Simulated assay, not measured.
Amino acid sequence: MLNVSTFLGVATTYVRYKQVCALIPGNSRILRLNRIGLTLGWMSCFGLCIIANFQKCVLYYIHVLGACLTFGVGALYMLLQTVLSFHMQPEFHGKGIFWARLAVLLWSSCSIGSMSVSSGLLYSGRYGSGLEQRLHWDPRDRGYPLHMVSTVSEWSLAFSFLSFFLTYIRDFQKVSLGAVVTLQGRTLHHVPPPGSGAEEQGLLFPESV
């Protein structure tokens, strides 16, 4: 499921990149920010792929690296898109889109702060060792309140990311996607260049295929 989400995230960030390029082709500052945004978006999607393929209870530090890429770099992507929305109002979209993205960005920032603080305290060693590999918690366990705060913050952060991508719905209603097919030859077989030996052989032996 997360691998599918990675593909959808890559596609969404690319469509957003192409949309901004088409809307503001002559503003070098906007185009520079747009390219940086595409890079950050794809880095965040790569982190999501790491999370999907390296479980927390097996390779904890690799999983944490993926989480930092997904949520940390992803928050920078949200910040940059919010800045782009600020510069694009009101000529290209309404002010409500900017304020909605700013609100989601603040929501995401609060969730990151809460998750970082609670996780840092929980895994600091004050409540025991090996807690990062524990799958089942009991309310009587030491550090259980911090575990709950961390878990709620992580889910809140995930929903904030989903909410930010939902703000693209009205923007993408003005976009049509299509594929351009260009034929490189009259057949699907390899066509030898003119003057080659293969062509001469074909002329000498017309029955050959």
Rank of each mutant, 00 (worst) to 15 (best):
1 M>G: 09
2 L>K: 02
2 L>N: 11
3 N>V: 14
11 A>Q: 09
12 T>Y: 06
13 T>A: 07
14 Y>G: 00
17 Y>M: 08
21 C>E: 14
24 I>E: 13
25 P>V: 13
28 S>L: 10
29 R>W: 12
31 L>F: 01
37 G>I: 02
38 L>R: 01
39 T>C: 14
42 W>E: 04
45 C>T: 07
47 G>P: 06
48 L>A: 06
49 C>I: 07
50 I>A: 04
53 N>D: 08
54 F>H: 14
55 Q>P: 01
56 K>I: 13
60 Y>V: 03
60 Y>I: 02
62 I>S: 01
62 I>D: 00
63 H>E: 08
65 L>P: 01
66 G>Q: 03
68 C>T: 11
69 L>S: 06
72 G>P: 06
75 A>E: 08
76 L>D: 00
83 V>K: 07
84 L>G: 04
85 S>D: 11
85 S>P: 03
86 F>S: 11
87 H>M: 11
87 H>A: 09
88 M>H: 06
89 Q>G: 03
91 E>C: 08
93 H>D: 14
93 H>Q: 14
95 K>A: 13
96 G>H: 13
97 I>L: 15
98 F>Q: 02
99 W>P: 03
101 R>F: 06
104 V>H: 02
106 L>N: 06
106 L>T: 07
107 W>Y: 12
109 S>K: 00
112 I>F: 10
112 I>Y: 10
113 G>W: 01
115 M>T: 02
116 S>H: 08
119 S>Q: 03
125 G>I: 07
126 R>F: 04
132 E>A: 09
133 Q>E: 13
134 R>K: 15
135 L>N: 13
139 P>Y: 12
141 D>A: 09
143 G>W: 04
144 Y>Q: 08
145 P>G: 03
152 V>I: 15
152 V>C: 13
153 S>L: 08
153 S>T: 03
154 E>F: 06
155 W>Q: 03
156 S>R: 00
156 S>C: 10
158 A>D: 07
159 F>H: 08
161 F>K: 02
161 F>Q: 14
164 F>L: 08
164 F>S: 05
167 T>I: 04
168 Y>I: 05
176 S>Q: 15
181 V>P: 00
182 T>H: 12
184 Q>W: 03
186 R>G: 05
186 R>H: 11
188 L>P: 00
189 H>G: 10
190 H>G: 01
192 P>H: 08
203 L>A: 15
204 L>W: 11
205 F>E: 08
207 E>S: 12
208 S>I: 04
